[in-house]
């Protein structure tokens, strides 16, 4: 079938069965909308938690009696771990200076203290790709009984909670996205299947006149592609409008919303996903054509 004729044929069929198609477009659009929303949420949670290793560090407090050799041994052991980015030694004097500068106007509180009460410490920074509660726990276990180590401190519960949340969201997001994609495939499949049955006699006539399988399939695949891509464009428009309204109207009350971004890739990804899902569903619906 010539491509222009196939397109005309498909459009004609869509116009004749406009209500079935409209329903399918709406279903696909809403499914793609929720899939995109899930993906957006995942992307933002992921990028927020990815910055965590830059801010997060483990503090190892050293005893007064620790020798420079013991300290070097400790640093060498920690740096052997693949998850560690770097270690920073903070002497007790530097720690006091920093404390004073942090307290600024309230620095008088420290005036009554004679001797510096702060211990020497080693700050451990992590690589973003291998950062996680397991890595932190592993280092803690390795060094806590070493000579000179007084205490190891980090936000254990906070870190575990953030990671559990990240993992849970990712699993739930993937599950939701898979479910919605299967649903959209099914919608496209059902629409084309219904129309395939409604046009059974027409298709039989095509076959009797000598039409090839490709000739018969092409209009249905075009219809599937149109349903899917229009669904994708509608979902993109709704998502974009919603994101603009959210950021404009609510960012004054919730400054966090300002960091919400609308990835430009979505402008291609949504119509393209719709297109592929539409064609996929139609191809499954047509199945094998026998003579």
């Amino acid at each position: 079938m010539g491509s222009s004729y196939a397109l005309r044929f498909a459009v004609g069929s869509i116009l004749r069965e406009k209500w079935i198609y409209l329903l399918s477009v709406c279903t696909i659009a809403s499914s793609l909308f929720f899939t995109a929303l899930t993906v957006l949420l995942l992307v933002h949670v992921d990028s927020a938690t990815r910055k965590l290793p830059q801010k997060f560090s483990v503090m190892v407090y050293l005893g007064e009696s620790v020798s420079p050799e013991d300290r070097d041994k400790l640093v060498a052991l920690v740096q052997k771990d693949s998850a560690v980015e770097k270690t920073v030694f903070i002497s007790r004097d530097d720690a006091l200076k920093e404390l004073k500068s942090t307290l600024k106007d309230s620095a008088f509180l420290l005036e009554g203290i004679g001797e510096n009460p702060l211990p020497d410490a080693i700050e451990i920074k992590f690589k973003s790709e291998s950062f996680g509660p397991e890595a932190v726990e592993r280092i803690k276990t390795a060094i806590k009984d070493m000579k000179g180590v007084q205490d190891v401190e980090y936000g254990e519960e906070f870190l575990s909670a953030v990671h559990a949340l990240r993992k849970g969201l990712r699993t739930a997001g993937v599950a939701v996205a898979v479910l919605l994609i299967v649903g959209m495939l099914f919608v496209s499949y059902s629409t084309v299947k219904i129309l395939f049955y409604r046009r059974e006699r027409e298709i039989e006539t095509f076959k009797l006149l000598g039409a090839t399988k490709r000739f018969i399939r092409t209009p249905f695949l075009i219809e599937g592609a149109l349903i899917g891509s229009v669904g994708g464009i509608v979902s993109l428009a709704v998502l974009f409008a919603l994101a603009s309204v959210l950021v404009r109207q609510l960012s004054a009350a919730f400054p966090l919303l300002k960091v919400l971004s609308f990835p430009p890739g979505l402008a291609f990804a949504l119509p393209l996903s719709g297109l592929l899902i539409g064609i996929g569903g139609a191809a499954i619906a047509i199945g094998r054509i026998r003579y």
Binding site: G12, R16, R201, E202, E204, T205, K207, L208, L209, G210, A211, T212, K213, Y291
Partner: peptide, 19 residues
């Protein structure tokens, strides 16, 4: 399909496409 393209058939029930 190739065989059928060499044959023209006038079907008893016409088999015309109403649309």
């Amino acid at each position: 399909p190739l065989l059928r393209r060499h044959i023209g058939v006038v079907f008893q029930d016409f088999r015309l496409l109403d649309n």
